[in-house]
Nucleic acid binder design. Structure first.
Lengths: 227, 227
DNA sequence: CACGGGCATCAGGGTTCCGTCAAGGACGGC
DNA sequence: GCCGTCCTTGACGGAACCCTGATGCCCGTG
């Protein structure tokens, strides 16, 4: 299911968007200011962001830059300003599209679909989404892990961490990068989180958790996932 | 250089676009009908297409579908029609953006930059830089060293030192430079560090550590890495 | 031939980093 | 409002890592 983050300080607009999006089977989060938006984006990793530029706490362009610091999620800007400069500034800051209020719901939804569509991974390669090891199988598309014929139950954070590691199979992922991708851009030094959750993953997935074969520690640098 | 394909049947619009784009160092091709557009797209592989929907020979949406059959090149639609249905149809056919005439050149160029930007390959660090020698292989992206089919474990300092040397393959790297890049700018005279860690690297990577072939000492000056 | 500078090697000790456990708190479902 | 799940945080023992000093070798110089 596609996850949308709606950011607007006008309740009636948020309501209209939420209703329309939910009716079309989108999963919707909403924020009414920039700080909440950045926080929610980090926590929920939406597939697309609909962002009103006129927010009470900060400039909308700052929100765009804050997002672009760590993610390429499509950003669809909503604004009452028609001025060309505003549009150029927002687009160059990293927005993907710019719609002026008042807008037609049909058009907005079509632009949303376009933004989501082109963010989809390139090939229709189903094969690449499944990663197998001797001990377990990870299905990135279905968000499932299977071990010995049974599905393994992972918490959201555990899954997220696993996902980042698996998407970088064989490559070393630095602890700072892991923290930022899983916990959000404001993290980077809380390495104890990594220790705790890496232990959980090993306990659930490794054949012998005390002698990990797949989740490998590189002391002082980060972790590495090996098939 | 970014290559743009402009498709429009109105000469003055094409001219305005071509002038503005060339002034900004884009490489520009132009077509005045759909058939030519499809042909040029196939022959020239543009990085982005600016497409007017009102063409003399075929429906603009057909051009979009024709392109989408084989390429994900960003398509920026230009149209005099303001109707919502038109926009939705074009976007759902595979267009990336929809601008209504008359349009501001600044805005169009900003949308063009946005379309090109998000089509860029993910992460500039994907370039798997691999350096091979007779004895071992270094993968700078994955931070991995392989020797005789087995991965070699390096400590952070060892890896850092190796990285600096490998990035300067064949060149002499001064001791001061090595110390500053690996240990920080306040170091420069602690050459004993270098001796210790160079010995570690040789022991782990050289075929005959006592007679190094790849990590070569230049007495009094520094070290050099040779393939 | 004696000497000294620069380098290689080795092993010890202090420090940082990691794995593990357990407790407390936030959140949502029933 | 209770209960279970999940996330956060702190503490501690042990392992990995980094620095340091000592020793011996090579080589050019006096």
């Amino acid at each position: 299911m596609t996850r949308v983050l709606v950011v607007d300080d006008e309740p009636q607009i948020v309501r209209a968007l939420v209703i329309n999006l939910k009716a079309r089977k989108y999963e919707v989060d909403a924020a009414h200011d920039g700080a909440t938006a950045l926080q929610l984006a980090a926590a929920r990793h939406p597939d697309v962001v609909v962002l009103d530029l006129g927010l009470p706490d900060m400039d909308g362009v700052e929100v765009i830059k804050g997002l672009r610091g760590w993610t390429r999620v499509p950003i669809l800007v909503l604004s009452a300003r028609h001025s060309s400069d505003e549009k150029v500034e927002a687009l160059d800051a990293g927005a993907d599209d710019y719609v002026t209020k008042p807008f037609g719901m049909d058009e907005l939804l079509a632009r949303l679909r376009a933004a989501v569509r082109r963010a989809e991974p390139v090939g229709g390669d189903e094969a690449d989404v499944i990663v197998e090891t001797d001990d377990f199988t990870v299905d990135l598309a279905a968000k499932k892990v299977n071990r010995g014929g049974k599905d393994v139950r992972l918490t959201p954070t555990e899954w997220h961490l696993l996902e980042v590691l698996v998407r970088n199979t064989g490559r070393l992922v630095g602890q700072k990068q892991l923290l930022q991708e899983v916990w959000g851009p404001s993290y980077g030094t809380e390495t104890n989180y990594l220790r705790v959750y890496m232990a959980q993953l090993r306990r659930k997935l490794e054949g012998d958790p005390s002698r990990p074969r797949h989740f490998i520690t590189e002391a002082g640098m980060g972790y590495r996932f090996e098939k």
